[in-house]
């Protein structure tokens, strides 16, 4: 075998474990889901194999699914915006700090050591009627009766921000950390104020990181079902809750498959738009 041929094969050999894993753990199950989406659920709960378009017709034409999908996208957008507003100053502070950067990054990672469900449930102890915040408010006499703060859309967004903020900060940090700090000094020396230097130099250069963090937060936020389940009220459902209910509660795997593919398609379109205008390379950098 020639050296060229060997060199051409080498990347594929190195990639083969990862490609095998992606094929077996992602593509093959995805194919099963596609096939399932054309089956039907019988009255007893058993599946009827075949090629039926009923689930797709229902998923695409029923206003109920469209409304919940739009609500999900709304919640994911608000969450992403809050994460961006809160995450940027934190990332900026970490990127520009001297000496204790590693410690700050470690603190940022610290929440990942605790289960996402536990972190979500911790809000019940903070915002509950007999929780810490109400305890402080009643103890200080600010309120006479505990305030009902839990189980609404605001607490769902709060829980999502709590979960997703570190992803946003990390992505913006990676972007900011790669910017030469002397660029701001150069802008200042040319007469720009600190604020102008930030707005016209640093912010534009860090936008890819902000966009990568935004995409991650949006996709993860739109696909969650635990947060609305734990912190939401009776009507605060997101699209993933519909998938969960179809598959788990109603034992309707075919409809659940169609719904999950529908959500996947919407998110894939958003990723496609991102890739078209910003490129996936920045996202990979952020993840790295």
């Amino acid at each position: 075998m020639s050296v060229e041929a060997r060199e051409a094969r080498q990347p594929w050999i190195l990639l083969s474990p990862a490609l095998t894993a992606v094929t077996l753990l992602l593509l093959v199950p995805l194919c099963f889901i596609v096939i399932y989406s054309f089956w039907l659920r019988t009255a007893t709960g058993a599946d009827q194999a075949g090629f039926y378009l009923d689930n797709w017709a229902e998923a695409l034409s029923d206003r109920f699914y469209r409304d919940i999908l739009l609500n999900t996208l709304k919640i994911a957008t608000i969450t992403t915006a809050i994460c961006a507003l809160m995450g940027y100053p934190s990332a900026y502070f970490i990127a520009r700090s001297r000496g204790n950067k590693a410690m700050l990054l470690l603190l940022l990672m610290l929440p990942f050591w605790i289960s996402y469900i536990i972190r979500t449930m911790s809000w019940i102890n903070i915002l509950g009627v007999s929780g810490a915040l109400n305890g402080v408010l009643t103890w200080t006499g600010i309120v006479d009766e505990p305030i009902q703060m839990l189980y609404n859309e605001a607490t769902v967004i709060l829980g999502l921000v709590h979960f997703l903020l570190p992803f946003m900060i990390l992505n913006i940090f990676v972007s900011l950390d790669g910017i030469d700090v002397t660029l701001e000094d150069a802008a200042n020396s040319l007469g720009a104020t600190k604020w102008q230097a930030f707005l016209q130099v640093t912010l534009p250069l860090s936008l890819p990181g902000l966009a990568a963090g935004g995409l991650l937060c949006f996709v993860l936020g739109a696909g969650t079902y635990i947060t609305p389940l734990v912190l939401g009220g009776p009507t605060d459902a997101m699209f993933a809750n519909l998938v969960f209910e179809a598959i788990i509660t109603q034992l309707n795997w075919p409809l659940g498959s169609a719904l999950s593919l529908m959500l996947l398609a919407v998110l894939a379109v958003l990723v496609g738009i991102y890739n078209r205008y910003l490129g996936m390379a920045q996202l990979m950098k952020g993840l790295g």
Partner: peptide, 15 residues
């Protein structure tokens, strides 16, 4: 079961 579990899923979410 099939009908009511599905209908409840909708009613539960405000429909």
């Amino acid at each position: 079961e099939a009908d009511w579990s599905k209908t409840f899923g909708r009613v539960q979410k405000g429909y």
